[in-house]
Nucleic acid binder design. Structure first.
Lengths: 220, 220
DNA sequence: TTGACATAGTGTTAAAATAACACTAATATT
DNA sequence: AATATTAGTGTTATTTTAACACTATGTCAA
């Protein structure tokens, strides 16, 4: 293999891309920015000289979409020299989770450059962004099995049925209600608030909250 | 949060660091380079302008240690702006696995700048390299549970006892021989070669080989 | 040649985890 | 009061995992 010249700093750019997931109406959605007609992209952009990578990802997310205060995790770094034409752009990809209730819905609705799209039916995305979304979805789904990461989609209090719907939406399969509840309660990651959710013409449901909100626990 | 200025390209450097694991005499070792007296570092260095990240990791490993043809996997990207003084260096960390039998032992022994050190007793390492090694070890150990990654430490043919020793060395615990063999054979990832290992004054052992060498399978 | 030594190889059983499965309870609406 | 709708709850069979000990086959030395 030929030894390459060191990076020409004028050509190297470091950026972050963020796959922000949220769940709306039993659909797993990703936040996308309109780049051109029929061409979308993930939020993200260059990393500042004195900015750490997580910070850059959060900043671009906030600046471009108004969304703040999310759970963020590094996913993978994409560095194929041909992934962007005419310039070397290495991108540190992240994924982020946010409860639908915490979203600035008005602000988002006013901005025609921003939209939520279902993961299962993405529009054409720029560069390798579709691949990034797929990888993020896989990572998220596999983390459901051995962590409490799904709680990051939940508001301050929620019902067990709502939590089950989150699991089912991400995994794309239905789960047994009794087994699900046993499993979740055995994790010891949620507790009852004492309150009840009374909505709809049916029996009210107990409300729960995360015992350690913000913290993600790993099982076994 | 203050909006940062974009990266000054003159200050940004992109590098890779590689944690190369190998197992010698029932010890999990990492390959280190002597940086100064009592100060060691991981192999690695800058990413070339037209070089992909994996390629850069492999190239530095080869140039600095003579080791080639390893299993390589991206680990995490470290980008804290204060991780290196006076310059912004973002590092894409990798880990790599190689069977002891495939190492250029003579070449390595001749080079006083290179040495194998046990993961459990590392010398002082530069920057955040100790943290990188720890993270790589955790990742490797957890992958044993749900993949055939351990085969990357094995030569072309090997005994089940040797494979079990690899597991035990990485996990730092002893495993039950019968349960281990059942589990491994159920994975369907190895097959008998027909040959026998006859070494030592005891019963010879059957030799096995990977059914798909180089490929890593995920279980369940 | 035979006995000591060293590692290879092999099944069973108990315990734990998982998966399958259906009915009653509480509320709102008519 | 009957209907509709979701909440909530246990048991059992199956599968997986964990614990456990002896025989087999070679080398070597007496």
């Amino acid at each position: 293999m030929k030894i390459m010249a060191p990076v020409d700093p004028a050509l190297l750019a470091l950026s972050t891309d963020v796959v922000l997931f949220s769940i709306h109406a039993e659909r797993l959605d990703v936040l996308l920015l309109k780049q051109a007609a029929r061409q979308w992209q993930l939020p993200g952009g260059e990393v500042g000289a004195c900015e750490d990578l997580d910070g850059a990802a959060l900043r671009h997310l906030r600046e471009q979409t108004g969304v703040d205060d999310v759970y963020l995790e590094q996913l993978y770094t994409f560095g194929d020299p041909r992934r962007v034409d005419c310039q070397r752009v290495v991108s540190v990809a992240y994924y982020a989770l946010v409860p639908a209730e915490r979203l600035p819905l008005d602000e988002l609705r006013k901005n025609p450059q921003v939209d939520w799209c279902p993961v299962s039916d993405l529009p054409p995305l720029t560069l390798d962004h579709a691949q990034i979304v797929t990888l993020a979805h896989q990572r998220l789904a596999s983390k459901l099995a051995y962590s409490t990461i799904a709680l990051q989609f939940m508001p301050a209090s929620f019902t067990l049925s709502a939590l089950q719907t989150v699991y089912e939406t991400i995994l794309g399969e239905v789960l047994d209600k009794r087994n699900f509840r046993k499993r979740i309660l055995a994790m010891n990651c949620i507790e009852t608030t004492g309150g009840m959710a009374r909505e709809g013409n049916h029996r009210p449901a107990r409300l729960y909250r995360a015992t350690h909100p913000g913290r993600i626990e790993f099982l076994k």
